[in-house]
Design a protein around this nucleic acid. Structure first.
Lengths: 258, 258
DNA sequence: GTGACTATGG
DNA sequence: CCATAGTCAC
């Protein structure tokens, strides 16, 4: 079974790339972020005709998440509110969708805020959102796959240049600590389960030839609860779509579990 | 010798179409309108590497004209001012470029204002501009090829629906009278030299499936002075580029003279 | 409908 | 650098 996460930076603009990639890889579950489209205008047709089911939670212009699945999914819920009505205010931005893959297996797909400038309004919103996510995950039961665009490089080896990281959003202590707290709920970074190597990235800025020079960040992650660790067989980043004309700035990350 | 006129609706966006078309037809002179780019950013390279010379007069976002020529051209001048400094005010918008093709042969490439709504400011500007063009042409000597996007259908058979034409900009009496005055300087509509047939158009609105239904207008013209009439061998509209994906709303018109 | 502009977000 | 929205022009 293959589960992938991909920030597509507009599903309408990237539809051809995503469909070609789905046809080539045949992943079972594809978690998308930054779909940038309201649900009524999500291009479901392309997925339906390939035998996939579409579950999405989007908005105009920004954010938006979706799960594309070979199987129809149960208990699909968007946002925090269904489980944590106290933090329904964080649902104005469409950044979370979850589904039940099996009686004991939940899939959570997140698009964690970018964070803007260090110490800005957006930065604090990102930290607040991470607390919200912590609360949300805490009340889940059973095995969980938590994936998406986290906009956080967990370690210095997960970004090409960790200098000045005290104020480098995506690599600051406060963000990493929030992510560590989430991990402490029982999650394992599936990519790091297989390699310690530096230089593996999932995002490269469009500017300044960042991809060509491999000036990237590993910010797209798949986290798995302990019960899934022994079933995990591989986790890799597929750089190929980032090489295509008019690519997303992110590459998909694929987890294979038996 | 082939001379063509084509409103490309952005030379940067249409560069591939124009180059393919140049390669296929090998026209000697190509007059462009609505290049929508300042001279410094005109994509000359694509033409230079095909053995063409580029002469352009453009501005940001709107208007802009250019002559692409197999031969280097002499006496290239942009706007009215070089010959009629009194109407230099009409040169704020880049709508005219001329060149000497031979000692006795001048090529004038124009992008006549669209005219907006009937009786609007823009409509009156169009009529003023036509007077300016009349004055400009009057002082030229020798044979002249005057071509471009005139935004005027000379006769009712030159548009798909001539009803309500009293207020239909592009087909009003005032515009046609100005065009007739210009023609009376000694010009012949090269296209009409070869056919009287209706239903031949050079522009179709992007909206409402206008092209598919052939709801067009013949507003792109090549006018030739009497001395050139006997040398004219054909004048045709090439509809093929309008069928391509992401086309200009205009088709090129080609005059063949011996 | 298409393109270019400005602004914003990333 | 890329994508979106809103605006304007055609």
């Amino acid at each position: 079974m293959q589960i992938a996460t991909w920030n597509v930076n507009s599903i309408r603009t990237r539809l051809d790339h995503v469909c070609q990639w789905l046809d080539a890889t045949g992943v079972d579950y594809l978690c998308l972020q930054e779909t940038k489209v309201v649900d009524a205008e999500f291009p479901r047709h392309a997925f339906l005709e390939r035998g996939y089911f579409v579950y999405c939670s989007g908005q105009k212009a920004y954010n938006g998440v979706a799960i594309i699945s070979r199987q129809p999914l149960a208990a699909v819920e968007a946002g925090f509110a269904p489980h944590l009505p106290t933090q329904a205010d964080l649902d104005d931005q469409k950044r979370l969708i979850r589904a039940q893959l099996a009686p004991d297996l939940t899939l959570v797909n997140v698009y964690i805020p970018n964070g803007g400038e260090y110490a800005s309004e957006k930065y604090h919103y990102k930290l607040r959102w991470l607390v919200g996510l912590y609360n949300y995950l805490q009340q889940l039961r059973g095995e969980v796959i938590l994936c998406g665009d986290f906009n956080i490089a967990p370690e210095d080896k997960d970004l090409f240049d960790a200098s000045d990281r005290a104020t480098k959003v995506g690599a600051t202590d406060a963000e990493r600590e929030q992510l560590a707290a989430i991990r402490a709920l029982g999650f394992c970074d599936a990519f790091r389960h297989f390699t310690d190597a530096a230089g593996h990235y999932s995002w490269w800025d469009y500017r300044a030839g960042a991809f060509r020079r491999n000036h990237g960040w590993r910010i797209d992650h798949l986290y798995i609860t302990t019960g899934l660790k022994q079933r995990a067989q591989a986790c890799r980043i597929d750089v190929a779509p980032r090489r295509l004309p008019k690519p997303s700035d992110h590459a998909p990350v694929i987890l294979t579990i038996e």
